[in-house]
Design a protein around this nucleic acid. Structure first.
Lengths: 177, 177
DNA sequence: TTGACAAGACCGTCCAGCCGGTACAGTAAG
DNA sequence: CTTACTGTACCGGCTGGACGGTCTTGTCAA
């Protein structure tokens, strides 16, 4: 059955993210991922013929998940601005203690170009937000601050306390209007 | 001679940063660094007995350079706030097209704990800034936005145009007061 | 002569990718 | 129903190469 098989891909992707998070981005080997996903190395290589393809799969699923979450946010409270939705979504994402995207470091080590789609996505997102915001300065500040938040989460940095996190988000939302 | 020796360490450190930037963080091998530094592998391992020591050296020199630059900034225009000095310094750092710190990705791959001193440094910096600023919300926004700027530079992201960069910095300086 | 330092051949380990299998579902001819 | 064939999904041992680190040998200043 097609459904059962396709499932395997997602399991592998999730396993890769888990391995990178728990064992460190430098330990993301095909064997580790396969073992974590409950699949043999051959099976892994069947689904992703090359490590590069696996990385690409991670990027794509990351991006589609992100977009989906963003649209869901924007839809559920359709009255707020897109910028506010983005801020809240990112704040929630970063509230989880888990970095959840350490695999990005593995991808960069493999080839920095793997992040190109992510950059493009962000550029596009900023462009969209520009169309809905009048004050460019405020928009840039919010966008960059969120970028900073995501960066700290990615690096598993605990520079900000929970209260500071909340204060930051509410300040950003105020600026976003 | 001590001068000759110490010189070699710096050359190696610089070479490591160059290799990571140009060949990608995944290609930072001892051989590549040695070759780039004009030193044999034996010579490299004499100065840094292990790859981990090399990474540690990179972190330490990065941190000391940063602190030095920060103090220089604060001294040369002693009247502005420490936050403004930090913003300007970071803006200048990030204006250079070169990422210049891609080695961080190699360090993370080697062992995520290598970044611990950097996190501690930032925590300490934020703490110092808190002591000199009255509005915590504004401080957090500026700090995080700068973090975002550094992150984009690190990832070699060109999401912001030069004008946007300038606008962002001036907006931040306005908030910083 | 000696000792700090550099050179590069060498070794053990790790890992991506390859390849020859296995299991099984569907299909179709007898 | 049965047997033979085909394609999909998956398995795991193997290998060739890269890389970190060691070791022996050389060099040069003091």
């Amino acid at each position: 059955m097609r459904a059962r098989r396709a499932n395997s891909r997602e399991k592998i992707l999730a396993a890769a993210a888990d391995v990178a998070r728990e064992a460190g981005p430098g330990s993301l080997s095909l064997e580790a991922v396969a073992s974590r996903a409950g699949v043999s190395k051959g099976g892994l290589l069947y689904n992703f013929p090359t490590k590069a393809k696996l990385m690409q799969g991670l990027v794509e699923s990351y991006l589609s998940d992100f977009q989906e979450a963003l649209e869901a946010r924007a839809a559920e409270a359709g009255h707020e601005s897109a910028l506010s939705a983005y801020i809240k979504l990112s704040a929630d994402d970063c509230e989880r203690p888990k970095p959840s995207a350490s695999w990005m470091f593995s991808a960069i080590a493999e080839d920095p170009d793997f992040l190109t789609p992510i950059k493009a996505f962000k550029r596009q997102l900023l462009e969209r937000l520009k169309g809905e915001t009048d004050d460019l300065g405020s928009l840039l500040i919010c966008f960059l601050a969120i970028e900073g938040l995501r960066s700290m989460n990615l690096f598993d940095s605990d520079v900000l306390s929970a209260e500071e996190h909340k204060l930051l988000v509410s300040s950003l939302l105020k600026i976003a209007g």
